[in-house]
């Protein structure tokens, strides 16, 4: 079994199985058209794209790792750093912008004590801004993992965060 050390989402370095990646590569085939789908599936599996994963993809697809990095850094979806357990995506589309999206990001940043784009110290939340999630009639909107929260305000943000924190304590 081929393993490599990458930090887990808890921040500890642990041995992680690269066999998962090899299986993903096998399923998609090694053509250059498979690069983006492989990166997407790898990120799903590992939470982000560690160096070891990028190098293995580079060797398997015979694409220079510089080119793989080129693709990874071009697309907003890919991450080179681990993220929190819950990803908060505050929509900054046009409708949300005019409905005060900036204040929603600020409220999350204030409640979580992180800057936009960063992860909380306890690695529970990552705060991101996204272009548009397409739920314009519910503006301002934020998505946490797969769930959408519409018509938010400062108070709504606090409520949502409290709900997640309560759930975490229960788990």
């Amino acid at each position: 079994m081929d393993t490599s050390s990458i930090p887990s989402s808890s921040g500890n370095v642990e041995r992680v199985n690269l066999d998962v990646l090899d299986e993903i590569i096998r399923q998609h085939g090694a053509g250059s058209g498979s690069l983006i789908p492989i990166l997407q599936k790898a990120q799903d599996a590992y939470g982000y794209l560690p160096k070891e994963v990028i190098e293995r993809i580079s060797r398997s697809l015979l694409v220079p790792s510089s080119s793989v990095y080129g693709v990874v850094t071009f697309y907003a979806q890919f991450r080179l750093k681990p993220v929190g357990k819950h990803i908060i995506r505050v929509c900054h589309g046009t409708a949300c912008h005019v409905a005060g999206a900036e204040k929603i990001t600020e409220a999350f940043a204030r409640d979580l004590q992180v800057a936009d784009g960063e992860t909380t110290a306890d690695r529970l939340f990552t705060l991101e801004s996204v272009a548009c999630v397409g739920c314009c009639s519910l503006a301002p909107v934020a998505m946490i993992d797969g769930e959408t929260f519409g018509r938010l305000d400062g108070r709504g943000v606090s409520k949502v965060i409290k709900r997640y924190r309560r759930q975490e304590r229960k788990d």
Partner: peptide, 23 residues
């Protein structure tokens, strides 16, 4: 084919480059 979060890929030639696995 799933996009990966780049607005410019709505442009025809960029979209095709993306399907081909490039920037």
């Amino acid at each position: 084919k799933e996009g990966a979060g780049a607005f410019v890929c709505g442009e025809e030639t960029a979209l095709m480059a993306s399907i081909e696995g490039r920037r």
